[in-house]
Simulated scan of single mutants.
Amino acid sequence: MPALPAPDFAPEVRARLEVDAKELIGRYPVARSALLPLLHLVQAEEGYVSPTGIRFCAEQLSLTTAEVTAVATFYTMYRRKPAGQYHVGVCTNTLCAVLGGDQIFAELKEHLGVENNETTEDGAISVEHIECNAACDYAPVVMVNWEFFDNQTPESVKQLVDDLRAGHQVTPTRGAALCTFKETARILAGFPDERAGAVDASGAGGAPSLAGLRLARGETLPGTGGAKVVSPRHGAHTPAEPSEGTPSSSDAPQDTALSDPAHPAAPEGSEGR
């Protein structure tokens, strides 16, 4: 027995989405290049990529539903069942896990009474373990609707979700103010982000992120007693016995065969050929 076709959006919803879809498709020289933004668009409507959303994207781009489904199931940011108003992602990759991410994830699930990729009964919070957020210098990291909450503990995360469920204002560690999961999906589709602080340079790179750059420039790091470390390539010398809190000489960039013309690399046994 053939599968029944997915239901369509209500006429007024479809008409609105078609206007948005036309704008998104018009940004690309090849229509199917707009598939990822269109998936975010339908996710912004329903809180996940439903069969109805897949059918809509396929019709707008003259693709099969199988082609759209293949993409929607490949990328983890597209959910296959409704997300909560606030989607909480706990990084469980190596560094975050070592520093407590696994414990945060376990205690958060127990606190909310849900498992991975599930949503609380009130529809407020969904939970997902996620891979690296490229914020290892702030580990362990939790994201709420893709906004950063750095240096978390099990207690701080449980308080975070309790505040969200109670309707309290919650401020990310850096970046813009929180908005709902659906609102975030619409921003990711490519529509204007009108939140206060959406363009906030102060959240782009804090002290942990910039430490390596400051060391390379010979600048002083906070808490090092004024000591400086300069790369030998810049004509300065690293102290042989650095003081406490100052990186050792082995932390400075070293010459390698690729960067040192006096010691070129060559395949073993090729000398003299």
Rank of each mutant, 00 (worst) to 15 (best):
G89H: 01
H263K: 13
T171D: 09
Q85E: 15
E23C: 12
E271S: 14
V141D: 00
S243M: 13
S248R: 04
L24N: 03
A185D: 12
R214K: 15
G212C: 05
L38R: 03
Q152H: 09
I125Y: 08
P247F: 10
A257C: 15
R27T: 04
V161S: 04
L178F: 09
A265P: 09
E244Q: 15
G223Y: 07
D193H: 09
L221R: 05
Y75E: 04
Q152L: 04
L99N: 07
V127Y: 02
Y48T: 01
P29M: 13
L41Y: 06
R214F: 10
G101Y: 00
A211P: 03
A198I: 01
A134L: 04
T64D: 11
I54R: 10
S62C: 08
A204R: 02
V68Y: 07
P267F: 10
G190P: 02
S250C: 13
L35K: 03
S250D: 15
A124F: 05
A265M: 12
K81R: 14
F148S: 01
C91Y: 00
I104D: 00
D162C: 07
A166F: 08
L160Y: 00
P192T: 04
D102W: 07
R186Y: 12
I54W: 03
I54E: 09
Q60R: 14
D200M: 05
T94N: 01
G218I: 08
E268W: 15
E194L: 14
A66K: 12
H40M: 04
